[in-house]
Amino acid sequence: MSASTNSVPNSSTGSKKSLKAFSDDIWKNKTAKINAELFTLTYGSIVSQLCTDYERDFVKVNNQLFLMGYNIGMRLIEDFLARTALPRCESLAKTSEVVSKCAFKIFLNVTPQVGNWSSSQDAFSLFLDENPLSDFVELPMDAAKELWYSNILCGVLKGALEMVQMDCDVFFTSDVLKGDQTTELRVKLNRVLKDEIPAGED
């Protein structure tokens, strides 16, 4: 796993157009696409299978989904950086924008709203108005309390951010599937892992 793409100097990729237009262009013209419902159905079959495998222990299911996402995130970041050639983010605010407007857009074709910043600016929320993972889903009653159906997304963000030296906690705080008004995914930055940038990269 190379970190070389992470350390592109800020100056070299000065973004002239807005991040949104930039991402729309990548999505429209440079992204191979697939039927979103195949994606939805495949994820559905994974979650329902896990619920059976873990005998409806939904805490274990959450953890397994998170782990799957974590593995994905670690690989996905490379693909993401290769396709966008975006520079390192100078602030968490910038990171939040790249995640919502660019990463979510070019992988899942949705753009969650960023909000709910903590007073110390070290945590924010992504509000998923649309979530391709959860179309057609209704949680069974026994799962409604504990299961975070889309928990794989937390793992993906955790894994991807960790690969760019950001140690974060990522978790859902609400989900419309549970009857909440919004689907809110919280990202909290713990620390920046400066030491782990491979020597000689800069």
Binding site: T31, A32, K33, N35, A36, T42, Y43, D135, F136, E138
Partner: peptide
């Protein structure tokens, strides 16, 4: 809880595509 019956089966009721990469990662 919200209900599946409030949604629509219309193929255009939600986004029609995601990236092949997203599916590939999930499938792997």
């Amino acid at each position: 809880l919200p209900s599946v019956y409030n949604g629509s089966l219309h193929p255009h009721a939600h986004n029609q595509h995601v990236s092949l990469a997203a599916f590939a990662f999930l499938f792997q």
